[in-house]
């Protein structure tokens, strides 16, 4: 009960409905500082189960910083401090008792630039299950690798060369390999930080298609600088401006009828 009290105790200037009916992640008054510079301030937002939500906004607005709060990747940056609360399944992930290892196993992440390890395709996918000790025999591991690659839509392209290095794939394939690597550890949420910005349109289309299938199993938070992409893939959209969450709502609504003037300016291309 106390937990729910916490969740209600917040203030927000955000326009629109920040709540979700079936929330997976609940963030309340999250502020992030880099040394003494405030990167985002008082962001509160729910992320629903098995929904795709996109975070948009001009560059430097703090959308990536906010995304990196969900798996505490900000911890790896020197001088970065996070205030506020983020609940994942009713557990505050910034609680002192929380270990980031299981948290990050539960919250997968895909980065802007494809970053496969300089290992074979097989080892790239098997890396997560191996370090977490998810399986203890070769057969199960083969199975996980195969299923992850299938779910990432890469299996048919690489099944004959699982031993060749992951870095030898094309950009789009590398990014799908990274998605396969993330889902191999059975996460519940996948964070994507501009996953298509380094890819050509055809590879982008493939990833976007993949996102729709993945949404059946995972909650997906995607940061994108492309409004079209946000419109195509996500159910809800959140607009960030200068470190603040300005407006959030159903994608269709945001793109056709934004309420806040800043959102309007961004959508219509006056700022960006």
């Amino acid at each position: 009960m106390e937990m729910n009290e916490d969740k209600k105790d917040f203030k927000t200037n955000t326009v629109g409905d920040i709540f979700s009916d079936n929330p997976k992640i609940v963030s309340r008054n999250v502020s992030v500082y880099y040394n003494d510079k405030k990167a985002i301030s008082d962001v509160s937002l729910d992320i629903g189960s098995k929904e795709i939500i996109s975070l948009i906004g001009p560059s430097g607005c703090g959308k990536s910083t906010f995304l990196r709060c969900f798996n505490r990747m900000n911890d790896t940056i020197d001088g970065c401090k996070v205030e506020g609360k983020i609940f994942l399944d009713n557990e505050n992930i910034y609680d002192e008792m929380i270990d980031v290892v299981p948290l990050r196993a539960k919250v997968g992440m895909v980065f802007q630039k494809p970053n496969p390890f300089p290992k074979s395709i097989y080892d790239n996918v098997a890396y997560g299950p191996r370090i977490h000790g998810l399986v203890d025999n070769k057969k199960d591991m083969d199975n996980i690798v195969e299923m992850s690659l299938k779910n990432a839509g890469l299996w048919d392209e690489v099944k004959d060369r699982l031993d060749s290095p992951g870095t030898g794939l094309s950009g789009g394939q590398q990014q799908r390999l990274c998605i396969a690597r993330a889902i191999a550890v059975s996460p519940e949420i996948i964070l994507m930080d501009e996953p298509c910005s380094a890819l050509d349109p055809i590879a982008t289309a493939k990833i976007e298609e993949l996102l729709q299938t993945l949404a059946n199993d995972y909650s997906i938070v995607i940061v994108t600088h492309s409004m079209q992409q946000a419109a195509r893939v996500s159910q809800r959209t959140a607009y960030f401006h200068l470190g603040e969450l300005v407006e959030v709502g159903y994608t269709k609504h945001i793109f056709t009828n934004p309420t806040d003037i800043k959102t309007q300016n961004y959508i219509t291309g006056r700022i960006g």
């Binding site: 977490h132 199975n143 059975s186 059946n216």
Partner: peptide, 24 residues
């Protein structure tokens, strides 16, 4: 489609059980 991948809850339990050892 996701059947052959491990259930997320089972995975979470396995990860949590070994984390102390890995921290050591």
């Amino acid at each position: 489609m996701n059947k052959s991948l491990m259930n997320a809850k089972d995975a979470e339990l396995i990860v949590k059980s070994s984390v102390l050892k890995r921290r050591r």
